[in-house]
Amino acid sequence: MNVLLVEDDPLIAMGLLQALQQNTYTVLHAPDGMRAQGLLRANDIDLIILDLGLPDMDGLELLRWVRARQSRVPVLVLTARDGVEQQVLALDQGADDYMEKPFDLRELEARLRALLRRSHNLSTDEVSLGALQLSPFQRTATLNGERLELPAREFEILEVLALSAGKVVTKARLAHRLSREGDEVGDNAVEVYVHRLRRRLRESGLAIRTQRGAGYVLENAG
């Protein structure tokens, strides 16, 4: 799961980066609104943690920009601004949740999990498809009850396909998902990772089917 942390306080940002990375999230950090916009354009983001007191723009302005692009990515506002009026304003502008600083890290992580489950229509922390059990939050997968050891990029492709099981996922979306700032991933690389996953899923009853001209579909073929 890719999280964008928009926070200008270096101490808070460092603490959150370490805590979220320990919980297996991939975290991108933007200390201001302009850099946040650049990261959102260049990366496939699953959730935004947004401070409102940014140095170059109000966080609510960035929130409006996100929603104006028709993005449904969950946004958790994390701010020192207190009061019901601020909370109502943020929620009305498109925030999905709101927490005031100082905050309890365990509560923040629980709220993140809830937002991510809701955005992916999950009732639990796991995705089940035939012989495959996958936890996007723990970044673990089992196949026929045995741990499936996957390199990071193979796991991310499997995660996206599993969360969209039965639906076509475009090659461009997978490439976008694997790309990081300054580290673009092309279609050929996606094809290599999909080929490796197909070999791992062999004999499992699951298949990654190519939809010519459209993308890939993970389905239970057993």
Rank of each mutant, 00 (worst) to 15 (best):
A110F: 05
E156A: 08
R118D: 05
A162Y: 00
L105G: 05
R196C: 03
L116Q: 09
E184H: 12
Y193E: 10
V169H: 12
L63D: 03
S123Y: 07
Y98F: 14
Y216L: 12
G145T: 02
L108Y: 10
L218M: 02
E100A: 14
R67C: 09
T170Q: 11
D9S: 08
A189Y: 13
L40M: 13
D92L: 14
G130S: 09
E184S: 08
V66Y: 05
G166Q: 09
N188E: 15
L105W: 08
L108C: 11
A110I: 04
T210R: 13
W65S: 10
L20A: 04
I48L: 10
L178W: 03
L206E: 04
L115Y: 00
Q133R: 13
V127A: 08
L62Q: 02
I49H: 00
H29Y: 07
G186S: 10
D32M: 06
G215W: 03
A95I: 06
G166M: 06
E107N: 08
V73N: 00
H29P: 04
R209Y: 10
S119D: 09
L50R: 13
Q70Y: 10
T170G: 15
P136A: 02
I49L: 11
R35W: 06
R139N: 00
N43L: 11
E181K: 10
L129Q: 02
S204D: 09
R173L: 15
L122R: 06
R72M: 11
L39P: 03
G186W: 04
R199C: 08
S123H: 10
E156R: 12
V84A: 11
E156V: 01
I208K: 08
L17Q: 15
G182A: 02
V3F: 01
S71N: 04
R41E: 14
A172N: 14
V190G: 11
R202I: 12
E61C: 06
D92W: 06
V217C: 13
R139V: 02
V75E: 05
F137S: 07
R198C: 12
I12V: 15
S128Q: 13
L78N: 06
L112H: 01
T24Q: 13
E159F: 04
D96F: 07
N43M: 09
Y193R: 08
V217Y: 12
N2D: 06
Y193D: 05
L50P: 09
S164N: 15
L62C: 05
L122I: 07
R113L: 07
E184C: 04
L91H: 13
V84L: 13
L218N: 03
L17F: 09
A165G: 11
A189K: 12
R202T: 14
T24I: 04
A221T: 08
D125N: 12
L17D: 12
T124W: 04
L174D: 03
T142P: 01
H195Y: 13
L62N: 00
A172H: 13
D96R: 06
R177D: 01
R35P: 00
R72T: 14
V192H: 11
L143E: 02
Q37C: 14
T124N: 04
G38S: 11
G83V: 00
L206D: 03
S179K: 02
L40W: 04
N43T: 09
K101I: 10
T140Q: 13
Q86S: 14
R111H: 01
V160I: 14
A36S: 11
R139Y: 02
N121H: 14
A152M: 08
D92K: 15
S71D: 07
G182S: 01
A68T: 13
M14I: 07
